[in-house]
Design a protein around this nucleic acid. Sequence first.
DNA 1: AGGCAGGTGGCCA
DNA 2: TGGCCACCTGCC
Length: 295
Amino acid sequence: MPSSVIVWSGWQPLALPEPLSPAVLAEIVDGGQTFRWSRAPDGAWQGAWSDSVVHLKPSESGGLLWSSPENLAGVVASQLPPYLAASVDFARLADDLPWRSDPHLARCLEAFRGLRLLRQPLGETLLGFLCSATKQIVQIKQIVALLAQRHGREIAAGIHRLPTWTELATVSEEQLRACLLGFRARYVQQTARFLSERPGWLDQIEQLPYVEAKERLRELPGVGEKVADCVLLFGAGRLEAFPVDVWIIKAMENRYGLEGWTPQQIARFGRVHFGPFAGLAQQYLFAWERAQGRG
DNA sequence: AGGCAGGTGGCCA
DNA sequence: TGGCCACCTGCC
């Protein structure tokens, strides 16, 4: 039983292969890869995944400092590095992207140097992106916050984890709609029923090659091309996944002259042009385009 | 105040 | 295969 007040551990360092600016950290945790991060009162980022809750802030040296509720410190110490894919040298992967012959990509890499792709739990990633259809990031965050608060187990005082798919299978469509899901409620409920009847089905996906993994994911109601690619990119470390959303369509029209191309054509262009780490390029293009959109 | 929003699925030619 | 449209409803 969690106590009524959270006692936070002292700040602890976490090393990454390359330094990170505050703005790029913000882009990583609040740029649409994940929907469970927000600012804590002291300005640090507070995030949650699985049974972990953490505060995160940049250190003077360009590394990261983290703190967690005392009772979760052990879990977080072991789960934070894989969540941040801390062993992956994204700078080296970015250097393999075709920036030498692609001036727009080159300026994206420079503007968001240090950008990383998270390695989130697959099931939670799926849930987040099932909620995302024609929603803005702020609204998706509200939805998952409600799902956690109302239907997920408490892991620290007042902080709940997301419900598992088995738990979601017991939640009525009406309750889901009450979490602001709208027509997405049916996707969540049908997917929950599907998965709860097939233990291990989702975990198997992580072992499959990209194309097959994507095919399998698309069997789930509410999972199309875009959501499947997001789940594989942000929840399974498949860097060849190239999600095509409205921002990427804009980027391809404005920066690459691909006007009138269908999402499928753009996806193929992306994988051919950017290569095996196309998903990393996508995240840079996405960050750039959003920054322009905000003015 | 009202249009619009990180898509998907189902229908039609 | 390709294009169109309904689907919910809380924000800016």
